[in-house]
Simulated scan of single mutants.
Amino acid sequence: MSNSILHKASSRFYADHGWLKSAQTFSFHGNYDPERLQFGALRVLNDDTVNGGKGFGRHPHDNMEIISIPLEGVLEHQDSMGNTAVISPGEIQAMSAGTGIYHTEYNKDEDQPVTFLQIWLYPDALNVEPRYDQLDYSKGDRQNKLLQILSPHRDDEGVWINQKAWFHMGDLESGFGIDYRLKNEANGVYVFVISGEVIVNTQPLDTRDGYGVWDVPLVAIKAVTDASVLVMEVPMKW
């Protein structure tokens, strides 16, 4: 028997710091609910908008897999491993914080905001050597398909991280349906609707809604309108 959990966009936590507006699916910093701590290994799903020229100053992380996916605007990254990079829509960035890193994230554009998803996963091994990865998937075929953008394997499609997780992005036309078959049936799938309306199994979802399902071999996704979705398969136990 399958299990599921629904997180409507309106039920997310919100933080407004002036330069930063953050919608948080799970408990984060000062926003806490013991019923909204994580979905399996998925610990953070923040939908952040940063004003032009603003950003997060130098700060530390350790023992966390950190993924950034810009949706609008341009994000600049610098870290203590010596990486300096700019990521734009159609790109994904992953960091294995491992034994510890410092990094900064800034809106590269002085005039326009940047909106990006910041996602944290618990790793499957602690105190690994920190690592950075970045991929341009913009030319990949995700029209009425689910394009893999993250995996646990160095030689697989997408960036790779220290967790047995797979991320896929899809742009679906109204009326189109597609099934996602789990790589590991012990995992769960969390579908986040970037835009549009979809039905996941029998659950209607709107823009920025999230829906987690586990104890299933596959998840059926049907677009009600033109829609973009992020599909995250993650371990429920690790």
Rank of each mutant, 00 (worst) to 15 (best):
K21C: 04
W19L: 07
T104I: 08
D155L: 11
G175P: 02
S27M: 13
V189Q: 08
Q38L: 13
G188S: 09
F26T: 06
N107Y: 10
S138D: 07
E72K: 14
F28P: 14
K54F: 13
L172P: 00
P89M: 06
T202V: 12
P70T: 02
R154F: 04
R58W: 07
E65Y: 03
D226Q: 12
D133K: 15
A125V: 11
L37R: 15
I69K: 04
T115F: 01
L71T: 05
D179F: 04
S4L: 05
V114M: 01
M1F: 10
V50Y: 12
Q78H: 13
G98A: 05
M232L: 15
V198N: 06
H77P: 11
V44M: 14
S68P: 01
S96R: 05
T49M: 14
Q78N: 12
S96I: 02
A97G: 05
K164Y: 07
V200Q: 08
V213E: 12
W238P: 00
S80H: 10
M169E: 10
Q93S: 00
M81D: 02
K108I: 00
K145V: 00
I87S: 03
G52T: 04
P60T: 07
I199L: 01
N3L: 10
L150W: 06
E173V: 04
A223M: 01
L20Q: 03
Y211M: 10
G196Q: 06
T104Y: 03
T104F: 07
D206H: 03
R58I: 06
N184R: 12
L45S: 01
P217W: 01
G188A: 05
L135Q: 12
Q78V: 11
N144C: 10
A227N: 01
S27T: 01
L121A: 04
N31S: 15
R208S: 00
P89C: 01
H17M: 05
N51K: 13
R36Y: 12
D226K: 12
